[in-house]
């Protein structure tokens, strides 16, 4: 199969590409023929004001939402043709963090490991690195926003085999120590040859470089 060759051949660097992605929100044109090329080892940032469509673009890039026109390619093959292969490589931390309020941090992460073939025995050490081990047995709904965000972000360290990270505002609600931890994880991921696409309003670490795409440019060019 062509798709297997494209994604399993380590000689071919991974890349995530948006080809003329267009999304309408009712009568308004939200994303107009967006072209984006996120390469392996680079951190691709998407900038833009609130409401400019950053989250929508990320959801389209990871396949959670469909574009009205255009396609997203992973390693040169359309996502729609290799859904399962791409999902194995994908780590998406969305606008909604995917942390269940009634479950503890450990329970949330155990399931995340089961769903994504992560290493469950690492959960304690990752929670320790994130400074949330002491509260790991409290239902996540009782934790602060920053602590909940840390539970969601622990997946970055638990699923290191994933090749494509799509992160929506990963630094929101985090303190300096948390931001440094996330930047460190992203840097390690880039060095492993992973693709990262993210949005953020905070400055990222200086060690992370890559193209910045702005959605604020005139839409009807």
């Amino acid at each position: 199969m062509i798709t297997d060759q494209a994604t399993n051949n380590e000689a071919v660097p991974h890349c995530l590409e948006a080809v003329d992605v267009t999304v309408w929100r009712g009568e308004t044109l939200l994303l107009d023929r967006i072209k984006l090329h996120a390469k392996a080892g680079e951190v691709t940032q998407i900038a833009g004001a609130n409401g400019s469509g950053k989250t929508t673009l990320l959801r389209v890039l990871c396949g959670a939402a469909l574009a009205d026109e255009g396609e997203v390619h992973w390693c040169g093959v359309s996502l729609s043709k290799q859904r399962d292969i791409f999902n194995e490589q994908l780590l998406h931390i969305g606008h909604r963090p995917g942390v269940h309020a009634q479950l503890t941090a450990v329970e949330n992460l155990q399931l995340a490991c089961k769903m994504g073939n992560g290493v469950e025995s690492d959960i304690d050490s990752v929670l320790n690195a994130l400074a949330i081990l002491p509260i790991a047995d409290i239902p996540a709904g009782h934790l602060s926003a920053g602590q909940q965000r840390r539970v969601a972000l622990a997946r970055l360290a638990l699923l290191p085999h994933t090749r494509c990270w799509v992160l929506d505002e990963p630094l929101t609600a985090l303190d300096q120590q948390g931001r440094d931890w996330v930047a460190g994880q992203i840097q390690m991921h880039s060095e492993r040859g992973g693709v990262t696409v993210l949005t953020t309003h905070q400055p990222l670490s200086k060690n992370l470089s890559g193209p910045i795409y702005s959605l604020d440019a005139p839409i009807h060019g």
Partner: peptide, 17 residues
Amino acid sequence: YDDLHNGSLEQFVLSAQ
């Protein structure tokens, strides 16, 4: 309802399982 609103469902949909 809960899983849709806390993002768990999105994670389920985007997983390879």
